[in-house]
Design a protein around this nucleic acid. Structure first.
Lengths: 349, 349
DNA sequence: CGGGCGCATCTATGCGCATAGAGCCGGACC
DNA sequence: GGTCCGGCTCTATGCGCATAGATGCGCCCG
């Protein structure tokens, strides 16, 4: 590796001072055309690449935005064994939001830093915070309060996170309207009034989904479930114990609304193993609208989040916040769209 | 935004020098336990977040790896209009490779910088090169030679790019074996001997795919096509003129092997509009193995690249190159896997 | 012919951190 | 009591760039 050349090298080669070199790149109009040419030529010959570290230090800004996941999957490399490729684990909700974030950064010429927290110990945040001017964060195991101190240092957008004491920017969707649309459809179109909710409500998004379901059922004169089914983390040893118990007792609801597509897909695997037909015996719905739901048979009825728009919006918010640091935190709630497919009893779509 | 606190603030609060603060974070074992505690406490109280810019400048390394696309799609925000969501444009080949890169960076606790070139003028590269210690690059319109000067400054991995004069690291797949597998399958299983190739061979990956097709056909005693069909960029006003002309003349081959899945999907749209049945009248195959090929009806026969593995491998190479800058550039060629689905005449799979 | 003005460029400095090398201090040992 | 040594901490410096303020130069005008 040849040593990278610096402003000093370029200045010497062009016969000017380092200030002129810097001006040539940052404020070209301040430099006479002839001088500018000379500097650019020297820079080209020396393969000059400005150090972002030095620039960031001098300017007090890094010029990059960050996207952070606490819980990025850290499985060992996937093998793609003999069968089909696995689109159940990718792209998920976060991936599509991230894509929106990327596209918007690219469109604006913003550098983008992707970070995660390998040890789960928060040091990942510290590392990334030192590198960026603004940060968007997916919800993780730990509460949003951990983000509050950060938000005093730089603008922070929290995705799908409960509102806080007013320093974070928020981007989330209308979860209640989503499950309401599902419930209404199940009741009106398929005549189903016995609906359960599967998922765990520690995450505020899921809590809202459950809430929307109960409200919608009450409005329709149906008896909402008292609580959720199987509020256990996905991937546990014995999945969906309550659903299995209900099935054993012949008391399975006619429809199961799941907190996410992933959960719905896993549930359908289990139902299949139990010999329960979907949607014949039980209708199943998801939430998110990931591609895996379309690959599954039956295709999964779900609620699609506007993920690309969410990612883009986060970038917009951060850029605006950098321009006007005094502005109040923004809270956005984006609309969702129900997708009625086979798993609720509709024809293929 | 409160001013971020610095080593100086922490040092003062803890009653030590800035060197001790720095050591506490970088070489904890050099600092007595009691002192360390005091520093960490002060750091916590002050919400100290080290500046990556300053650290990078002082150490001469940024601690981040970069991933760069020349041609990142810069369309305006997608609307997701009334119908279904669009998985034709995402995730594509590059997205899945990028995912592998991300996962491996996350696993190693490496920061990852995503860059692109909004104006198409190479300044994007300059910006990102100044921010990272190593770089992986997707092929773009411009030739790999532009990367060579970069590779003298930092390790560079080129994906899917023709070999160069020996400074770049390369990660690509066995393209010839891929089309060979398709041709063999078409001939042996479906008895098809009249096979055309659709795509444009400026990109070396595609050239290899065409080459593999011709070699395989020759080996099977079939007459390979003289040239490719429709070597025009995707998305042009009047797509696939040659295919249309052949169809008008009743001279369409019995099978069309396409340079990529995207191309195959667009081709099938056109064939559908012409009233040509796939696979009944013409078998169609793709290359890459993106999800859109599984969503299409008929499902797309294709060759799956090990994209996650490619992304992970690039990170490995870069990390190794940073540890031993004198090591020779690596060239890897990963195996591919044919996926026989409906569009070649196989049953659903 | 001197003063004043505006432009192009330069000099000098600081951004926050890492680290080489110096300094200090207490204990072991003679 | 003096010397030496090792462990801990400090002082001093440089990393490459941006930029405020100084400088010099040419030109216009009185």
């Amino acid at each position: 590796m040849a040593k990278r050349s610096t402003v000093y090298d370029v200045a010497q080669a062009a016969g000017v001072s380092i200030a002129t070199v810097s001006f040539t790149f940052r404020q070209p109009e301040r430099v006479r055309a002839g001088t500018r040419e000379a500097v650019l030529r020297a820079a080209r010959e020396l393969d000059y690449m400005p150090s972002a570290s030095a620039r960031g230090l001098a300017r007090g800004r890094t010029g990059a935005l960050g996207l952070f996941s606490y819980d990025l999957l850290l499985e060992e490399p996937a093998d793609e064994p003999g069968g089909e490729e696995d689109f159940r684990t990718y792209p998920l909700y976060v991936d599509e939001v991230q894509r929106g974030f990327e596209l918007e950064c690219a469109r604006r010429g913003q550098a983008l830093l992707i970070g995660s927290d390998p040890r789960g110990e928060g040091e990942g945040v510290m590392d990334i915070v030192g590198r960026v001017d603004g940060l968007a964060v997916f919800p993780g195991a730990r509460p949003a309060e951990l983000l509050v101190p950060l938000a005093r240092l730089l603008p922070v957008v929290a995705f799908a996170t409960a509102a806080d004491d007013g320093v974070l920017h928020h981007v989330r969707v209308d979860n209640r309207a989503g499950t309401r649309a599902l419930v209404t459809h199940l009741a009106r179109t398929h005549g189903i009034g016995d609906i359960g909710f599967v998922g765990e409500t520690r995450m505020s998004d899921v809590a809202e989904r459950f809430d929307g379901l109960r409200l919608a059922m009450a409005d329709l004169g149906l008896r909402p479930p008292d609580g959720v089914l199987d509020p256990t983390p996905v991937g546990s040893a014995e999945p969906f114990p309550e659903v299995k118990r209900l099935h054993a007792g012949g008391a399975l609801p006619r429809a199961l609304v799941c907190a996410s597509d992933q959960l719905a897909l896993e549930l359908m695997d289990v139902l299949d193993a139990l010999g329960v037909a979907v949607p014949g015996d039980v209708a199943v719905t998801g939430f998110d609208g990931v591609v895996a739901g379309r690959l599954h048979r039956p295709t999964l009825t779900t609620v699609r989040q506007p993920m690309e728009a969410m990612g883009r919006l986060a970038v917009e918010i951060l850029v605006a916040a950098l321009e006007d640091p005094a502005a109040a935190p923004q809270r956005h709630r984006l609309p969702v769209r129900p997708l009625f497919r086979e798993s609720c009893g509709c024809g293929r779509s």
